[in-house]
Nucleic acid binder design. Sequence first.
DNA 1: TGACTTAATGTGATTTATACACTAAATAAG
DNA 2: CTTATTTAGTGTATAAATCACATTAAGTCA
Lengths: 229, 229
Amino acid sequence: MPFRNSFFKSAFSVDNVILGLENSKLKVLLIKRSEVPFIDEWALPGDLVRTDENLRDAPKRILSELTGLQDVYLEQVHTFGKVDRHPLGRVITVGYYSLVNLSRVKPKASSIASKVKWFDVFEIESLPFDHFEILGKCIKRLQNSVREMPIGFELLPEKFTLSDVQELYEAVLDKQLDKRNFRKKFLSMGILIDVKEYQTGVAHRPAKLFKFETSKYEEFKAKGFNFEI
Amino acid sequence: MPFRNSFFKSAFSVDNVILGLENSKLKVLLIKRSEVPFIDEWALPGDLVRTDENLRDAPKRILSELTGLQDVYLEQVHTFGKVDRHPLGRVITVGYYSLVNLSRVKPKASSIASKVKWFDVFEIESLPFDHFEILGKCIKRLQNSVREMPIGFELLPEKFTLSDVQELYEAVLDKQLDKRNFRKKFLSMGILIDVKEYQTGVAHRPAKLFKFETSKYEEFKAKGFNFEI
DNA sequence: TGACTTAATGTGATTTATACACTAAATAAG
DNA sequence: CTTATTTAGTGTATAAATCACATTAAGTCA
């Protein structure tokens, strides 16, 4: 670690696991690094925390630079601090994940990144730094969260079908779920409002559309609940 | 924030919520601060992370200085990074909790602290810095953990009774549990070994002693389980 | 030897989880 | 316009887990 002490003594950064849903697949937004180390490799977007910036504002800033989005679901997951996790110096990094609605996002290059691209979460096999570990922890946390609170609606359009929700859960948990049991359990929570509309233009029986009752949802988020499925 | 830039530019620290069980009460080890700010106030033990120290080693070091213990249960909970959380400068702190066996610990003053003392967790109403918030998050995490894995044996002596375990759970969850249901569920997990011994010297029917099967326990810790009670 | 204290144990009622297959409503293609 | 195709939507019976609840057992103490 030749640079460890000369380059910078120590710093903290955040790394951001930005997740979205596309074609029933859980996607993560990676950037092509435009700086050493690992220049030109795909990595998690991240940045140093500024001295006058609240920790939680750093991932928000990154998210907004990359996607333009302001109010997104954001959760801190874990802090990574092995001495040699960064080849250029001592950097402790805080891992966050956020859930964004892919249809509203046109990610674009920025000062942080020369390119930005969505990748299939479950097909990624390695990442620079300890980013693969960070990604792993975030996915695990999301999977746990989704069982404990009706999270993830951030990933859906405003009006959605029950099948959309099930696909979301299947994408996040990476496994198939029973349709009837899923619907039974989900509806019984009472956080969905039947908007009395139907899908149109589909070559099959159109599904009912729902949106959800934000108040009940917030209640659940606060209290937590059990959605083992 | 007069000193913010002159005292130190930025630093990271850890704060350690060290928990033990005494008289069926969940206790936390606080130190009487021997430094500004908040000199002479009771606070969580914490310290700056050294440049050449892995993050996770910092709470271990503190724990070992205060209690002499080496291998304790330690879990990272959350990182706190509001700009003004520390009156003297920008300090981002990582909160950990650990579980220690009170009978094996004689905490003593050290370079960090002029005095050390166990406090009733649920009677603490405020702490300096954002330590009250850190404590709160740690307790919440412990309460969740205890429902998901057979955690907390670190808080018990080597041989213990089922009532000890129940008291532990009651102390952590801060509520009464039904004896028969508790025992039924706990025994069914199969992580306890009946050591064929009994309590002695108690003025009532003596209870069976158990220890636990580390292998099954590790299995559970890895996989997680459901102990909703 | 009687009073006291905590240990230990089982059952029935209720709730929750699971497995599973057919009919309904739209479009597309001939 | 009839048929094929596709996904939506629904119920029931079985198994498993949870819950509420009261009595007897084995020791010490006075």
